[in-house]
Amino acid sequence: MTPVLSAQSLRCERDERLLFDRLDLSLMPGDILHLTGPNGSGKTTLLRALVGLGQAVEGHIQWFDGQVQSNEKIWYIGHRPGVTLLQSPLENLRYALALRGLERNESSLFEALEHVGLRGYEDVPSRQLSAGQQRRVALARLFLDTPSISVWVLDEPLTALDDKAVELLKARIQAFAAAGGSVLMTSHHGMSGDAVRTLALGGAE
């Protein structure tokens, strides 16, 4: 089986500090790779480098077999979730899909928004939502049925969510992996389950 992602001898130095060196990681279909580590240990930097935002990390990174265009198979939700405050949750969701070359009908978009607890807020400008609700706008895309997407790269997806939403999202992540998807995520929350592997950064300190 070809790994979804394989990376070897990753090294990152930032602001005169060595964050990690000779780091290898791989992600198989059905894997949940949970990056842990204290603040400033380079989790976000690593995630961003892996998806192709930034050159701060040296080393060899390969998605799939190295041939296919990987962007269309990945949902990346970063620290800044990419939710446009002047647009409604519905518009945001539709645009996020468009950037992946996807389209869904109105009812499935409404359904996804309902899943993340934004029922009744579909057409409200996102600016009027709370911080947690704004994050849910970004997370709503994970509750859509998108067969072309096989990888989720999530930077702290569980922050700013209430307990119920945390459980909901965790369950969704597990279900996605069970269906053969791969998840690469950072979080300060614990993740449990057979599919979960943990990679701790910041061990050098």
Binding site: E72, I74, Y76, H79, R80, G82, V83, L85
Partner: peptide, 22 residues
């Protein structure tokens, strides 16, 4: 500016179509 602040810029660069088009 606002795309940069809210993270939309990252999503733009990771689009499945050429970012130049966007």
């Amino acid at each position: 500016r606002s795309d940069h602040e809210d993270g939309s810029l990252e999503q733009l660069l990771l689009a499945s179509s050429p970012p130049t088009l966007i």
